[in-house]
Nucleic acid binder design. Structure first.
Lengths: 150, 150
DNA sequence: GCAGATTAGTTAGCATAGCTAACTAAATTG
DNA sequence: CAATTTAGTTAGCTATGCTAACTAATCTGC
């Protein structure tokens, strides 16, 4: 709040940017959750399923790493997905590892969720100019880079 | 993925933007949560406290609206904040309503959390050029607008 | 001015999701 | 082949989300 000029990014600006990013992420997810709940699949399950659908099969540990959660957390998320028939466990040569794969049903559910999400988003985006919509894509590029470095 | 050109925002692009926003929000929060956990205050509590600190005192219902959660959910979040002495309940003329106010301790804890968050974010932002850092602020403006319309 | 309706908040009970600690089972290593 | 390491699960805690059902206070209409 004080300290107006530092090397390249003022402390006040950084504080504000951090808070706004934090708040924006929280509120965005709360809104999207409303639509996602229609699928009967929780947000963590949906996100994990998305990795399997778009990134292909992998082990539980790899999925936990991709989702930045601990193995026990991912173990339970996968149990839920398996119970609903959205993901299948397969044995591998390494008897400790499991190979997780999205089922056809899981892929379908995920794509339906995407459809609902995009409906909400498209509606929200309609208030932006075409140019701004393009900028949003650039922003996401930047944001993804920031998150990777976080 | 097909349907390359629609009126102003192709379906494929909208799908991708929706997914990327969704995924970015999830992963951003997971990362920030790591630092926020040091405060011993959960993410929902921190977000609610932030509204009281920066937006001033208000009723439980108003806070629930601001945070986009149901009253019972906010009631419990506030109970946790009160238990830790970060928020105080005051009576109002309307006997049904409570006036929620951040305590000095709550304000201090929030600002410390901000500090930790901005440390992480500043580190992540250091990989961006100065110009990109400026753009990030502008794009946040856009994102907040999208969320308000969601 | 009081009976009934409305409004604010809480309580109870359920589910998901995060964690650590402690366990099992399988593979690797010396 | 014994000891260590690695992969995953189970158990148990906390926090957050919801709906349904409750209490208490205020407002409305006659």
């Amino acid at each position: 709040m004080t300290d107006v000029k530092s090397k390249s990014f003022s402390a006040g600006k950084a504080f504000e940017t951090a808070d706004r990013l934090h708040s924006a992420a929280i509120h965005l997810l709360r809104r999207l959750r409303v639509r996602d709940r229609e699928s009967g699949v929780g947000p963590a399950q949906l996100s994990a399923l998305s990795v399997l659908v778009f990134g292909g099969p992998r082990s539980l540990g790899e999925l936990a790493d991709a989702e930045q959660v601990r193995p026990p957390t991912m173990s339970r998320i996968v149990s839920g997905l398996e119970r609903e028939g959205l993901v299948r466990r397969h044995a591998t040569e390494d008897g400790r590892r499991v190979r997780l794969e999205a089922s056809a049903k899981g892929t379908k559910i995920l794509q339906e969720g995407r459809k609902r999400r995009v409906e909400s988003l498209a509606k929200a985006l309609s208030s932006l100019s075409e140019k701004e919509q393009g900028q949003l894509g650039d922003f996401l590029e930047l944001l993804q880079q920031v998150i990777r470095n976080l």
